[in-house]
Design a protein around this nucleic acid. Structure first.
Length: 366
DNA sequence: ATCACCCCGTTTCCGGTCGT
DNA sequence: ACGACCGGAAACGGGGTGAT
């Protein structure tokens, strides 16, 4: 405890607690959300998104680009029914653990089974990623737990354990992306997360995921659907956070998170490209990644959700630009409003390099 | 209360190939 | 020639923490 805290202060005079009381309950719950270091994550924007969602009348929300599931988590915390989906299995897994699951935890018996030495151990991860990521002990541990996860009876427990395992892997990496490999000692700045083994992380992350589980009195769902195949019946709002075409770059999530996507299904049915240094899996197609197809993709997207209120998350970095997007949205929605907010990246790159200041948008159409 | 030091993010850059 | 695409990696300052 700090010295200053020992000073006697009249609690009535303190201002800070008053502020705390004013913070919405839903946002308090989002403090428990286990963030991945995920590209495009809206976690820091959750208070702003909450503010705008709170003005809208809806009972059931779709989140078909769920990603890290942070916005689904927020909407669940706002006591609405949530249907979360993504075309990545890692996102669907996080959704099953934190959105669909309301009550299941990883208890003692489950942990015992997860950590047991399996009868017939597979060595796929150890054999494939030796010298690429992690230590041999870490890789052996990943093989062991991966095998044991599939032996659990409860699918929510499986998802929770996989979520904890994925977050352990992310924390053990010096950067949030799986594009750097080999000798990563130059990135070692002494931080605690790099000193812990994946096994040590796993124990911590199981606790974190257990504490993140909550119920909101609704039957929430999480799945892995293409956005154009997501069912819309019964939903009155859709939150859309599609990948966007960057100005001069790509937005491929597989290239950054291939390891987590593979891990989430133990690379079942996935082809590994051994010509790549980091053992990548094939990129998955989405029209939102291509300049040629993005405009048409948005037209189809808005058409697909023509009966729902649309809340579209977007940034000034993207193509097509805000004006084009609002014009497209006006084809299916009478009332289109744009909320803007400056987004300063807390971390990141190249302050010497000139770049357009980024504005985040929420475009609401109803 | 101040300040040095530690932690750590994630977009953007770079150099290359491919397709037209 | 040109832009799209791809694999891979760098950047550097904000914010937290603990010692003083």
């Amino acid at each position: 405890m700090r010295q200053q805290n020992l000073r006697v202060v009249n609690p009535e005079l303190k201002v800070a607690p008053k502020k705390k009381e004013e913070r919405p309950k839903a946002l308090e719950q989002t403090d428990f959300f286990p963030e991945l270091r995920y590209m495009g994550s809206k976690r820091r924007l959750l208070p702003w998104i909450h503010e705008i969602l709170a003005t809208l009348d809806f009972e059931t929300a779709l989140d078909p680009f769920s990603g890290s599931n942070s916005v689904s988590y927020l909407i669940k915390a706002m006591d609405r029914r949530v249907v979360s989906s993504d075309f990545l299995n890692l996102s669907a897994t996080l959704g099953k653990a934190l959105i669909e699951n309301s009550s299941v935890h990883l208890d003692g018996p489950a942990m015992k089974r997860l950590l047991a030495e399996p009868a017939n151990t597979h060595h796929f991860i150890e054999e494939t990623f030796s010298g690429v990521f992690y230590t041999p002990e870490d890789l052996k541990f990943l093989d062991r737990v991966s095998c044991n996860i599939r032996q659990l009876d409860d699918s929510a427990q499986q998802a929770l354990a996989m979520g904890a395992l994925m977050r352990s892997c992310v924390k053990r990496q010096p950067r949030g992306v799986f594009t750097i490999s080999g000798d990563l000692s130059k990135y070692d700045d002494g931080r605690r997360d790099l000193r812990l083994s994946i096994e040590e992380h796993f124990f911590e992350q199981v606790k974190v995921f257990n504490e993140a589980v909550f119920a909101n009195g609704r039957r929430n769902k999480a799945g892995r659907e293409d956005v154009f195949k997501v069912g819309t019946s019964g939903a009155d709002l859709v939150y859309l956070d599609p990948p966007y075409v960057p100005r001069a770059d790509d937005n491929c999530y597989i290239k950054r998170y291939h390891f987590l996507e593979g891990l989430s299904c133990y690379w079942q049915g996935l082809d590994i490209d051994f010509s790549t240094k980091v053992r990548k899996i094939p990129k998955r197609f989405t029209p939102f990644s291509y300049r040629r197809e993005a405009v048409e993709a948005f037209e189809r997207l808005f058409q697909h959700f023509k009966k729902q209120k649309i809340v579209l998350s977007y940034s000034s970095n993207g193509y097509p630009d805000l004006d084009q997007l609002t014009e497209i949205l006006k084809k299916t929605k009478k009332d289109v409003r744009v909320f803007k907010r400056d987004h300063t990246y807390h971390f990141g790159t190249h302050s010497k390099v000139k770049r357009a200041s980024v504005e985040e948008y929420l475009i609401v159409g109803q």
